[in-house]
Design a protein around this nucleic acid. Structure first.
Lengths: 185, 185
DNA sequence: ACGCGCAAACCGACCGTTTGGTATGTTCCT
DNA sequence: AGGAACATACCAAACGGTCGGTTTGCGCGT
């Protein structure tokens, strides 16, 4: 039995707090605010404690990226599971995830991650690999060129939404893109 | 007459060298390499000289952005001038500019600028205003929703191209998008 | 059951470097 | 002469990272 007070040493919980703290910091303060000091403080740990879990900052950021990719995986898989139609299911889930403000809005980790994509080739590779693997996995149902155009347009809409502060109503665009993923009879 | 040697004091030339140096630095070394020191050195000037032309770093970066926007303006206008068809002319020029590697490739200033978009709200506003003004200006010929989708897809393709190192051949996509801007008879 | 050792977990002070920015000159042109 | 156009020296702050020390908990021998 060890479910005692909070004073116990639970490294897994600390590691989780570090990753969550980094993500929250990136979402609300921007990617530049993700410093070793700030992340450690947000997790209730000192710098020394942080460096025990991650050898350097790059490892910390990479861990945060991988964590977010896992969550995105779960979101997309859940959406695909509740989709009756096989054709374009992945593209629909992808579009749905992007148009979900809570997951991809300015106040999200991805907004900050977009900033670091062009800077760090390693993080760029992480995302590129994820996307490539997903496209390849669902090639049977989502390999059509028309679906690729839909995904690209969703990416563009997401980027435009991030940039333009007073974002317009995009529900019409979302419906349009969703309709473009339906099989043509 | 004052067209003498290069030893004369020509503040306009220095200012130009600073903007070009900043752009070149951002393109080849990434946005993080755009520091006061590096830019001044690239322009053959010391820090003090730079701060004579720009009150702070934000003003320097803003000037660099405005400079690039002017160049983009010229590129698009030139493309539109040589376009016989009125409908979708702006969208076609926009797509053409994006798919021009020299202007928008990874080795371009825009690749670095994309990184700073999410970080700095001011720079974000500069781009958002430019885009909004352009769309409004060409609303008569490029206001159709189908054309907006094309522009968004071009943005998405550009972003994907920046992220994925081994970029695939996108000439087919470029033709597809271009075809989608033609008037439907 | 009980101490005991040892490694994992964490702290806190320190370091070298870089950054944007300032203050005080010095040179150049009109 | 006087201001614009630069140079030079300096500064405080923040960053990533290191290092020695301290605490916690678990295994192990008896």
């Amino acid at each position: 039995m060890n479910g005692n007070f909070a004073r116990r040493k639970e490294p897994d919980a600390v590691r989780r707090a570090l990753l969550d703290g980094a993500a929250s910091l990136a979402a609300h303060e921007g990617f530049a605010a993700v410093t070793i000091q700030s992340v450690a403080k947000a997790a209730g740990v000192t710098k020394g404690g942080l460096f025990h879990h991650f050898p350097n900052k790059q490892a910390l950021v990479a861990g945060m990226f991988a964590d977010q990719l896992e969550k995105l995986d779960a979101t997309i898989d859940a959406h695909m599971a509740s989709d009756g139609e096989a054709y374009g299911a992945f593209t629909r889930a992808y579009v749905a995830a992007i148009f979900d403000q809570q997951a991809f809005g300015r106040q999200s980790v991805w907004a900050a991650m977009a900033a670091s994509f062009t800077a760090d080739p390693m993080l760029r590779g992480l995302w590129a690999n994820w996307y490539r693997a997903r496209v390849e996995r669902h090639h049977a149902s989502d390999g059509a060129p028309a679906l690729e155009v839909v995904r690209l347009a969703a990416d563009g809409a997401w980027y435009a939404y991030l940039i333009d502060d007073n974002a317009p109503d995009d529900s019409a665009l979302r419906r349009t893109l969703d309709a473009m993923t339906r099989p043509t009879p």
